[in-house]
Every structure is written in structure tokens, then in C-alpha cells.
Design a protein around this nucleic acid. Structure first.
Lengths: 219, 219
DNA sequence: TTATGTGAAGGCCTTCACAGCG
DNA sequence: CGCTGTGAAGGCCTTCACATAA
């Protein structure tokens, strides 16, 4: 269930503020969802609430963590150590949530040996060995679009069954492999679509106008 | 419609390979969706196909671009020039798709003046001025979680009505403002959830095991 | 009395299957 | 004859509303 991480984060926030008990109404509000939906979601995990009272924050947190599988560590390899790969490697939110960035890999031999986020960047040739030795189960693809399919194929062949793809490419994997996609320009395009319908494109610019404004402001 | 960018990308790929005409079946395959779904989606834009033949690639590409609003440029501000902000600023996929990164803003005075991706980083105090002067309509938030709500409030107050939030925080905005969220650790958690169910956690590690392996391989 | 857990209703999106057009 | 465009069926997810338990 894709909303569990959301609830978990809301619960963590409550726990940090010392809240011990929370109602479905309150928790739903801080997660930004409907309270009935939240109750139905939680009911699939079991009856962890108390009628007339609510949910115990710490207990529920633990149950959700266990359900998601965060009571174990997962080893992750990041493939492609460009700007985005750097950002991902340095992103603090992973380690604190049960994900261990175990290896960084790049196809550029000049990058191999470079240290990023306390790890040595390895050359792409070593990908299969690293996956096996470090028992990596999750691959993060931050390569250019043209390399994405090949990288995914190699990850799958080496035994990885979960991939998070940041490359702006449509990648096919065999059944049984989970592939999630994060596409930055798609997200912006969806925003632009709504934006256009909102204000009648009042804020849309021609390329020339935009360049002029940039010149004027940025010098 | 959230799938239009996907179709657009598939069509661009076909155009680059010199394909002039494509059937719903083929296009759906390269976009990774059902062909009936694709035809229904496209039918909302108008009757742009030819029965018995298919769709003209270039023509359809233009229609979708227009529908999304990519025939105009949109000015974007990135708030928070840490690792992720850097990566976003340098990401080539934006400019080529109608998005112009017009300003970079950071709360750290030491960062102000620094040049990133050919733009000077401005101090957060200037946010409102920049939005007005550059006619910015889209804000990208790449700040730490604790700053996200304040930044979004300021963006909205200054007239921004579309926000893409990368901060791992639940942010509330008033009606009429579009807020999309990209949450890296949520994505990994969803993968972990499926991973756990797939192989009976065979690849899950305790923190100790993971550390041992890392030691052995990375030295 | 209060707030959970859950049938039932409703709405949205996907998929089927084929009429109809080129 | 082939493939689009689309009514209709089906399934999934959300929301309502209340019986039920503390």
C-alpha cells in the first residue's frame, strides 16, 4: 500500500513532538488524506486502534515499519554518479529509513575511485560482482536515458528485483521485477498542464520574453 | 492527464528513429500501457488518428505538446541549492521541454553569489522579487523538510500556483494551488514492501550483516 | 460517549468488444 | 480489410454512515 510511508512519516512527526495517542481524524489530517480511508488502510494491517480512544503512536509506527519491511536493512546500489546520483548518494533520508547505500557505480573510468558520500565510486564493470557480494536487492538508476535499459537489464540479470528509475526513458523489465519511475520533467509537465488551464496561460512566456527577463534580472 | 508526457516521450523517440506513422498498438507498447487506454486518452484531445492507418507521429506530437502547454515557456525557481537543488539545476531535461530555470534561491547567505548551472544563486530574501520580476509560475522546493512549509507559503503568497516538492514533508497549500510531491524515500519504501513479499526477505540484512559486507568489499 | 472497523453505495478508471470509417 | 473511436461492462478505490466496542 503506497500510503503507508506517508502515515509512517506523519507518525514519526507526532512521536517527535511527544504525542502518545492519535485519532484517525488527526492522523489523516497530518497525512493529508480522508479519515475513513486511513482507517480502512490501517484495518488491513490488523485492529491496532482502540475504539473511543484512537491509535497508540509508537505501537502503530512499529507495526507499519514491520509491514513495509523497514525492520531490516536493504542494500542499494546507485548507478550513474552524475549530478543526480551525487544528490541521491548524499541524501540523508535513506539511511535513517532502513536503506543502506552499499555501492556507487559509474560507467566513466575517470569517476572510478572518486569518493562520494564516503564511498568509493566503482566502475560499471564491477556491477554484477558488487550486487552479489553486497547482497544488493534494490537498484537506483540515475544514468542518462540511453543507458537506462542496459543498466536495468544488467541489474535484473544479476538478481536485483526492485528498481527505482530516474532516467527519462521507458524501460521494460520482466515479470516479477518491480520498476518504479521518478521522472522530473514529467512532473513539471503535469504542473504546466494544470497551470495552463488555471490562468489562461497568463504567465506563459515566449522563449524571447523569458530570455529578456532573465537578462534584465540576472545581468 | 498524467499519461500525456509519457506518450509525448514515446513519440519523440519514434520521431528520432524516423517513424512517420504509428498504430495505437505500437505506441501503447512503447509507452508501456494498454492500447485501448491510449486510444481513449487520445480521443479526449480530438480525432487525430486515421482509421485503418494509425497516428501521424509529428502531428500527434504537436497536438499533445499544445495540450500540455509546452508550446510556451514556463519559468521555474528552484528553492534550496543543496545536493538535490544542484542536480535539478543542472538537469538537462527541463530546458529541452519548455521549462526555463529562471532563478536559484538558497537561505544560506554563504551560497548567495555562487554560480550554479550558469545562474547566480540568490538569497532567500529576494524570493518574492524574483518571482514577480521573472514572472515565475512554477516553484521547485528542494529544501530540508523543516523549511518546506514556509517556503511553499511564501511561493504561494508571491503568486506561484504550481509547486513541485522534493522535501520529505507533508505540506498544505490553499485551494487553487497545485502541489505535486516527489519523495525519494517513499519510493524506496514502496519497493521494499514488495521486495519483502517477493522473496521472503531473503535479501534483507540486519544492520550488522550489512556493515560487515560493506567492510569486506569497500575495505 | 467517543472513535474505530466495516458493509454498502458511489464514482472513477480500465478493459473489452465492436461499430464504423478510411 | 485494418485500425480508430467509443458504448458498455467490469473492477478497483474512495467515501459514507453506522453498528460496535472500549
Amino acid at each position: 500500500m503506497a500510503r503507508l510511508p506517508l502515515y509512517l512519516r506523519a507518525l514519526t512527526g507526532l512521536a517527535e513532538r511527544g504525542v502518545a495517542t492519535v485519532s484517525s481524524e488527526e492522523l489523516a489530517a497530518s497525512a493529508g488524506v480522508n479519515s475513513a480511508k486511513l482507517r480502512k488502510d490501517l484495518s488491513y494491517l490488523g485492529s491496532y486502534g482502540t475504539r473511543g480512544v484512537g491509535y497508540e503512536v509508537d505501537f502503530l509506527r512499529h507495526q507499519i515499519s514491520r509491514e513495509i519491511g523497514l525492520t531490516q536493512d536493504w542494500s542499494v546500489v546507485i548507478v550513474g554518479i552524475g549530478n543526480l546520483g551525487h544528490a541521491l548518494a548524499n541524501y540523508g533520508g535513506f539511511a535513517s529509513r532502513g536503506f543502506r547505500i552499499a555501492a556507487l557505480v559509474d560507467a566513466d573510468p575517470k569517476r572510478a575511485g572518486e569518493e562520494v558520500a564516503g564511498l568509493q565510486v566503482r566502475h560499471a564493470d564491477e556491477l554484477e560482482d558488487l550486487i552479489q557480494q553486497l547482497r544488493i536487492s534494490i537498484g537506483v538508476v540515475a544514468t542518462p536515458a540511453r543507458a537506462a535499459q542496459t543498466v536495468c537489464d544488467r541489474l535484473v540479470a544479476a538478481g536485483v528485483t526492485s528498481i527505482l528509475n530516474f532516467a527519462p526513458a521507458i524501460v521494460q523489465v520482466r515479470d516479477g521485477v518491480d520498476l518504479r519511475k521518478v521522472d522530473l520533467s514529467t512532473e513539471l509537465q503535469i504542473l504546466a498542464y494544470h497551470e495552463q488551464r488555471k490562468n489562461g496561460a497568463a504567465l506563459a512566456l515566449t522563449a524571447e520574453q523569458a530570455a529578456e527577463l532573465a537578462e534584465a534580472v540576472n545581468g
